[in-house]
Amino acid sequence: MNYIRQEDLHNWLADIGEEYRLTAPVEKDGVILYEPIQSLDEIVWDFEKPVNSIKEIFFPQTEILMELQISGNGSDEIKEVIPTEKNILLNVRPCDAHGLNCLDAMFLDDSPPDVYYAARRQNSVVMGLSCSHMGESCFCTSVGGSPGDTVGMDVMLSKYEEGFLVELLTPIGEALFSDLPVTEQVIEVESPFEKGLFPVPNEEILKKSFDSELWGMQAERCISCRICAYVCPTCRCFDIRDEVVGGSNGTKQANRIRCWDSCASEAYRRIAGGHNPRASKIERLRNRVLCKLYYYPQQYGMLSCVGCGRCIDACPVGMDITEIMSVLVEGPA
């Protein structure tokens, strides 16, 4: 196992920060958030998990896809905006990196690939930080992850004594660290984590659950905000709109923007003419849970829940996906 001292890592980051934009957990008004950093001193090394997920670096809350010049005389201009910034993402939790793996299935592996997401993914290096413990709401071990899971990472660091163990996981990670002062050491790494497992309902149970009373009972307290989707590392629904931003002499300037959307909101599924196939929050909650546990696995072969527990922490009214999974498998308590 490779080992690097904190001080050496710090110096190396200072150098590489010239070339890459660094994003890491920072603390702002008592909240830990993944954000681009201005100074290495901002980086938080001891934390459970940021409130937001790392997805917003690849799939920003709002992004301009195209800049449009509309003259109406046949000489309209359309300029695609492809991101070029090079990113290093530091201290990414295993659940977040696992979430990127889920997003890749839809944005990259499914045809056609999403060029905006792909550009950011190609220009980014994911440096994970393994977890030393599982938080109150964490349940990654129930859905195929673990505090030492390396899926979706180029490099994984693990806190060890006065520095970090370094696992180089991809050619990108190896290339990046080729000039890094790491030392080879034989180290016994502690694992595994003991934590009660929540049952994950199988396909048959989920299919049968469609008309279950469970959804109504659980959804009743839902307030139809979007918090669960917006903090989720794998929720990836979006809305696209053209917005006029300026213009003169008969020419309009507009941006085609893409921004996050959430199936929990009432307007999400409303269609032309005003019909809403998911008018009630019962249908919306069912969709959200089945998307994680059934629809996404059907389409992409993997769960789209990574067990980070952010939705549980953030929910204003105590909704809990692990409770719903348990009730689906074991029946009501």
């Binding site: 905000c225 979007r226 903090v231 909101s265």
Partner: peptide, 26 residues
């Protein structure tokens, strides 16, 4: 402070009196 806002609308949705049928921000 607003810079951190996610526009998740939790504040609006939890409010007993913030109850327009169509919110002007949406």
């Amino acid at each position: 402070h607003f810079d951190r806002c996610l526009r998740c609308y939790a504040c609006r949705q939890v409010c007993p009196v913030c109850d327009c049928p169509t919110c002007l921000f949406e």
